[in-house]
C-alpha cells in the first residue's frame, strides 16, 4: 500500500522538528541539567527521527517507535521539570498524530 498523504505530512513535520531539536542536544540549557542529559536527550531525538523514517516506509515498527519516543520525551521533560507552553503544545500535537498513526497501523508493513 502506498503511503497516505497525512503520514507524509507527519513525517515531514517530524524531520523538520529533528532538524530544529537536534541542536538542542548540546544547548547550554540541556547541558546544565547534568552530564548525561545531552546523551539521553540525543537518544530521544534520534529515536524520533528513526521513527519518522519507519513511518515514511509505512512500517509498523515506525508507529511503535514513535509512541515509545513520544512517551519517553514527555517523561524526560517532566523529570527535568521543563514544563511550559511548548511541552503542552507538543503533547497535543503528538496525541493527534498518534490517533492518526494508530488508525493506519493495521494496514502497515509488519516487517523490518
Amino acid at each position: 500500500m502506498t503511503r497516505p498523504k497525512i503520514i507524509t505530512f507527519i513525517c515531514i513535520i517530524g524531520y523538520l522538528s529533528v532538524v530544529f531539536t537536534f541542536p538542542q542536544v548540546f544547548s547550554p540549557q540541556i547541558k546544565k541539567l547534568g552530564v548525561l542529559m545531552p546523551a539521553i536527550y540525543g537518544i530521544l531525538v534520534a529515536a524520533n527521527f528513526i521513527a519518522c523514517v519507519g513511518l515514511w516506509y509505512f512500517k509498523q515498527w515506525g508507529v511503535q517507535l514513535y509512541l515509545i519516543s513520544v512517551f519517553a520525551k514527555t517523561l524526560f521533560y517532566l523529570l527535568v521539570d521543563q514544563v511550559g507552553f511548548g511541552f503542552y503544545f507538543n503533547i497535543a500535537i503528538s496525541v493527534i498524530f498518534m490517533f492518526i498513526l494508530l488508525r493506519f497501523y493495521p494496514k502497515m508493513d509488519p516487517n523490518l
Binding site: 537536534f22 542536544v25 548540546f26 547541558k31 552530564v35 548525561l36 545531552p38 546523551a39 540525543g42 537518544i43 531525538v45 534520534a46
Partner: peptide, 10 residues
C-alpha cells in the same frame, strides 16, 4: 562525553 555523544548521534 558531549563531543562523542554528538558525533555518534549525528
Amino acid at each position: 562525553i558531549l563531543g562523542f555523544t554528538i558525533s555518534i548521534l549525528i
